[in-house]
Simulated scan of single mutants.
Amino acid sequence: MHAADPAVRELLQHGRLDVQGRLVEASNATLFCGIEVNGASAECVYKPVRGERPLWDFPDGTLAGREVGSYLLSEATGWALIPPTLLRDGPFGPGMVQLWVDVEEDSQLVDIVAPDEVPDGWLSVLRAQDHHGDPVVLAHADHQQLQRLAVLDIVINNADRKGGHILHAPDGRVLGVDHGVSLNTDDKLRTVLWGWVGRRLSDEAIDRLGELRALMEGDLAVALAEHITPKEIQAINTRIERLLETAAFPAPSGDWPAIPWPAF
């Protein structure tokens, strides 16, 4: 089932969850499920709230709620950069349910390569050494949808944009997943997508941010208030205003590690 199918939300909200396995590399309980209702079926990820590990710097609300809040903001931009995501009850209690998206084989948009193997047109982010002491480069594609995702990450203050959290679907869409440590009031942006630092935002991004600012004055803020605090909502407004004022991609603040570890 395609993420844009209007029946997806109905399926995610009311379908019967059948737990098929656990994604063991995840730091919080993350269950892979089949979901079915009225003959429609798909696969999804279910993250029960009771499986979340407490985080001292995210004391309010739930990580599941932050995932849903990030999805609401993605939808408000019109870019649809996060798979359909909602809160509902499941086999282990309330949790986040998100449509599973298959990825395009051998179609990475972020990679760690030798300096002479950076693909043409890619943007270098970091030079380092691998465990053998050989030089490597963290780089990513100069891709429009990836750039949109970088803008969204700034808005949601994503503290964990790993390369493995970026999906390149077979139909060409670029999607982000794992947004539980987003929407904090403090500047915690930590991402592999630093290749556009200092560059001017696209006219499209500026227009969308202006529309998002207007939506934050109405129903969008009301919807977000179900998941995050008033201070965190105000911080979103502040980040949007800052982006509109500078009209450029920011540099790392220096107060927080700029790149997640591991990067994938």
Score class of each variant (00 low, 15 high):
K47D: 01
L73W: 02
R53A: 09
W79S: 11
E67T: 02
L86Q: 05
A64T: 02
P48E: 09
L87C: 01
R50M: 08
Y71C: 08
F58L: 08
T62G: 06
R66D: 04
V68A: 08
D57A: 10
I82Q: 06
Y46F: 12
G65A: 06
G51Y: 09
Y71L: 12
E52G: 11
R50E: 12
E67G: 01
T77N: 09
E67R: 03
V49R: 13
R53I: 13
V49S: 06
P48R: 06
E52K: 11
Y71A: 12
P84F: 05
L55P: 07
R66N: 03
G78H: 12
L86N: 01
P48H: 08
L55M: 11
P48G: 11
A80L: 10
P84A: 07
V49E: 15
P54E: 10
P59Q: 08
E67A: 00
L87T: 01
G65K: 05
L63F: 14
L72W: 13
L86I: 00
G65L: 00
R53W: 07
W56E: 15
P48S: 13
P48D: 11
D57E: 14
K47P: 03
P59D: 00
K47N: 05
T62H: 08
S74V: 10
T77I: 05
W56D: 14
T77P: 06
G78R: 12
A76N: 10
S74E: 07
I82E: 04
E67V: 01
L87K: 01
W56L: 13
P48V: 07
D60N: 11
V49L: 12
R66W: 03
L87Y: 02
D57I: 13
R53S: 09
P54G: 07
P48K: 07
W79K: 12
W56R: 15
V68T: 13
F58S: 00
G69C: 06
L73A: 03
Y46M: 03
L72S: 15
F58M: 03
G69W: 04
T62Y: 08
R66C: 03
P59N: 04
L72I: 12
Y71F: 15
L86W: 00
E52Y: 11
P48A: 11
L63K: 07
P48I: 06
P59T: 05
P54H: 10
P59V: 02
T77L: 15
S74R: 09
L87S: 03
G78V: 13
T85N: 07
P59M: 05
P59E: 02
G78A: 14
L55W: 09
L73E: 02
R50L: 07
V45Q: 03
K47T: 01
P59H: 07
L63M: 09
F58T: 01
E75C: 12
A76L: 09
D60P: 01
L73Y: 02
P48M: 08
E52Q: 13
G69I: 00
Y71R: 11
L81V: 05
T62D: 05
A80W: 13
D57H: 15
E67Q: 04
Y46Q: 02
L87W: 01
V45Y: 10
I82C: 09
L87N: 00
E75S: 15
